[in-house]
Design a protein around this nucleic acid. Structure first.
Length: 258
DNA sequence: ATGGCGGTATGTTACCGA
């Protein structure tokens, strides 16, 4: 089974990239963030033509999340959950569904803007709600994959310039502690399970040729539960779509679970 | 210190993202 996560920064603009990527990478599940579209605009027909079904939670202009499943290889979604039951939110940042005995959760964490800002307080409150909910989810679903754009770089290996970013948004102690709290549930960072090195990023700023200079952050993650960890055989970042014309600033992260 | 780039709507500029 292969599960991928990708912040597409507008599914309207990036649909050709998504379809092209799925043709090359026929993963079982693809979790998307930042759809930036209302549900009425969701391109379900085009995805179905490509062999994928979806559950989705859209929103105008901002946010929006979806889980795509390969129809031929996966059971239909049941117990679909939109947003955190533990945190009242107008913004669409979470979608979860169960496929067979595997719970797939797709999240777009708040950005936080700047440490100490109102948006940072929102991020931390959202994270507290997330922690409580995931703890309950784990008791119900031992086989869990929790993926998405976390907007947290877990440690300095995940940052192109840790000195410049020290204490800044995505790298602050508060955010990194929240990430560690997720690992304590326990959940496991599939990428770090297999790769200890630095300079592996999932996001690069559009400006200042950041991608070409590999000035990026690893902020898109795949966490797996205890029951699935022994079955994780690969986890990698696919930089290919970041090289296309008009790319998303994020690129897919994929896990293989046998 | 600021803006850089890109997407979107409030639309020829502002807001947000990271």
């Amino acid at each position: 089974m292969q599960i991928a996560t990708w912040n597409v920064n507008s599914l309207n603009v990036r649909l050709p990239h998504v379809l092209g990527w799925l043709a090359e990478n026929p993963v079982d599940f693809l979790c998307l963030q930042e759809l930036k579209m209302v549900d009425e605009k969701f391109p379900l027909a085009a995805l179905q033509e490509a062999g994928y079904d979806a559950v989705f939670a859209g929103q105008k202009t901002y946010n929006g999340v979806a889980i795509l499943r390969r129809i031929a290889r996966t059971p239909a979604a049941v117990a679909t959950q939109i947003n955190l039951p533990t945190f009242a939110d107008e913004q669409k940042r979470v979608i979860a569904a169960t496929y067979g005995d595997v719970r797939v959760i797709c999240a777009y964490f708040p950005n936080g803007q700047a440490v100490g800002s109102e948006k940072f307080a929102y991020k931390m409150a959202w994270l507290a709600g997330l922690q409580t909910w995931l703890q309950a989810e784990l008791t119900q679903y031992p086989k869990m994959v929790f993926v998405g754009d976390f907007n947290i770089a877990p440690d300095d290996r995940d940052v192109y310039d840790p000195v410049e970013w020290a204490g800044q948004i995505h790298c602050s102690e508060e955010e990194r502690t929240a990430f560690k709290n997720l690992l304590a549930l326990p959940l496991h960072d599939a990428f770090r399970h297999l790769e200890a090195g630095d300079k592996h990023y999932s996001w690069w700023d559009y400006r200042q040729m950041a991608f070409r200079r590999n000035r990026g952050l690893r902020i898109d993650h795949i966490l797996v539960s205890d029951a699935l960890l022994p079955h994780v055989s690969r986890c990698w970042i696919d930089k290919t779509p970041r090289k296309l014309e008009q790319p998303s600033d994020h690129t897919p992260v994929i896990v293989e679970i046998n």
